[in-house]
């Protein structure tokens, strides 16, 4: 019975934060487990690079670890985490931009960063198997998102991937709701155009 209760019990974010504040490290592990996919997705879509996204996502969770004791719970934990992700992504892009690291590097070929590992790209066409790192759909998503500017990309990912409302996106990015609405539309229209072109060309999905 207790085991069943324990299995069914799904602690809230607030409960996890509270436990963490009291020194329960397993609560922190649960928070990471709960948010790792969302954080990594947002980082990857923003940074366009698996390795960098991984680094940034790790930085985000490290920052959370350091800051959680000060988290007062006035905002939702998820909102707070998204804000931390956005700040880290912005800082990282700025940092790399100043160091002349081109973010719009081609998906294939040599990496701009010499110290970065070679990127593994699935070959186009049939033959994609489980050993490849990226599916056709994933490549398509990446290529399509590359046609958007940073803000459009952030808005569309927060809306369509993370499923946030306009109000929350506006708050996170410091934009007016109307601005989010119009930019989201432009981003989605651009994405639709690119996807349509690429899907026609490849006849995939």
């Amino acid at each position: 019975m207790f085991l069943l209760l324990a299995m069914v019990h799904h602690p809230s974010d607030a409960e996890l934060v509270s436990r963490f504040k009291e020194g329960d490290r397993t609560a922190y592990a649960e928070i990471v487990r709960r948010y790792q996919d969302r954080v990594y997705s947002l980082c990857l879509r923003w940074m366009h690079d698996d390795q960098v996204a991984r680094e940034v996502a790790q930085d985000v969770f490290l920052a959370l670890y350091r800051s959680l004791p000060k988290f007062r719970g006035d905002a939702q934990l998820s909102t707070w985490i998204y804000r931390v992700v956005i700040n880290h992504c912005k800082n990282k892009r700025l940092y790399r931009k100043r160091r002349h690291v081109d973010f719009h590097e081609p998906l294939e070929g040599k990496r701009v960063d010499d110290d970065q590992p070679e990127r593994q790209i699935a070959h186009e066409g049939p033959g994609t198997d489980s050993t490849t790192h990226q599916s056709e759909a994933e490549i398509l998503v990446r290529e399509a998102l590359e046609h958007l500017d940073e803000e459009q990309r952030a808005i569309i990912v927060l809306r369509d991937v993370e499923d946030l409302g306009y109000e929350e996106i506006a708050d996170l990015l410091g934009l007016a709701r109307g601005t989010v609405k119009s930019r989201l539309h432009r981003a989605r229209a651009q994405l639709a155009k690119v996807l349509s072109r690429k899907i026609d060309a490849r006849d995939v999905i």
Binding site: D37, R38, V39, Y40, S41, V141, D160, V161, A192, L195
Partner: peptide, 16 residues
């Protein structure tokens, strides 16, 4: 637009 939205919703999320 609906197709683009659905495509991104389906394939946009990745696992850590």
């Amino acid at each position: 637009l609906a197709d683009a939205r659905a495509f991104l919703a389906e394939h946009g999320a990745v696992s850590a």
